[in-house]
Structure formats: C-alpha cells, structure tokens
C-alpha cells in the first residue's frame, strides 16, 4: 500500500504556473497550503461544509477541500492571495465584516465571484451564494452590508 502516487503537476495559480509534486489523492486545499505556501485558504472541516477553503477554479467558487489538486490541471485557480485591493476586500474592512478573520478568505472569494459574475444579484441570490460559508464571529449582517455595498457600486458604474 505504500507505493507512492506522487506525481508532478503544473498548476496555474493566481496567474503563475507552478510545478508541484503531490499525491494524486491530495486535495487542492492541501497542495495550496502545503506545497505552494498559500495559506489563505483555510481548513475548517475538510468536508465541504464550512466554506473556509473556498477558492476559484476558472472563476467559479469551489471548496478546495473537496477537489483533488490534480483535477485542476489545465484550469485557472484563484486564491485570496490573488486578489489585490478589490472592492469586496475594502468593503469587508470598512463594514467590520470579520472578526477572527478565519472564514474571511473563503467568504471573500465567494462574495468576489458573486459580485463579479452577478452584479444584479437580488437578496435571494445573495443568500443562495453566501449560505455556502459559515462565519462564527459576525452576525452576517455586516457581511451582507459589505456585499450589498459592492453590488451597489457595480451597478452604478455599469
């Protein structure tokens, strides 16, 4: 059983091609954190339940604990480290939409994808997307305010 299944894979992460050696059974989360040092994606449950590990694959939010790294070969991966001074990050800061900050990268990645792909999102859509992540510190009202402000700005500039 100890025959290693490690192999080399090329991953496109935050616009850079990275070569990593990982087990074929390693999740994207594991490889991001342990091989690439991208610890922004957080392990919260390793079971697809909490959303703290959310990253984007080809622009779509996924739970990186539930996807094998090797599945993402040929796809574009974006992690929180790939976002720089985006409106959603600023809104999270200004609205105090986090406290301990642990669920924040996952929440932001999901909210970023939402605001980028669905600027017209209504309340039901916002809820449908954001109920994928658990925050234990805030009341969610702060996060709601942050996301809605970004959506408002987007609509204004479009």
């Amino acid at each position: 059983m100890e025959s290693s299944t490690k192999c080399e894979m090329q991953l496109l992460v935050n616009g850079e091609t990275k070569s990593v050696v990982a087990r074929q059974g390693d999740t994207l989360l594991f490889v991001l954190r342990n091989e690439l040092g991208l610890t922004g994606a957080k392990p919260g449950c390793l079971n697809g339940d909490c959303g703290a590990c959310t990253a984007l694959v080809d622009g779509t939010p996924i739970k990186s604990c539930m996807m094998l790294a090797i599945e993402t070969v040929g796809k574009e991966i974006t992690t929180i480290e790939g976002l720089h001074n985006t409106p959603i990050q600023r809104a999270f800061v200004e609205h105090f939409a986090f406290q301990c900050g642990y669920c924040t990268p996952g929440f932001i990645m999901n909210a970023y994808a939402l605001t980028e792909t669905k600027p017209d999102a209504d309340d039901a859509t916002i809820q449908e997307w954001l109920e994928s992540n658990i925050c234990r510190c805030t009341s969610y009202q702060e996060i709601e305010a942050a996301v809605k402000e970004v959506l408002r700005q987007k609509r204004k500039t479009e």
Partner: peptide, 9 residues
C-alpha cells in the same frame, strides 16, 4: 485529503 493512496485517471 484522501488518507490512502489512489491514482487519478
């Protein structure tokens, strides 16, 4: 993480 060895195809 899959705690045993698998190959991916």
């Amino acid at each position: 993480m899959i705690p045993f060895e698998i190959t991916y195809h």
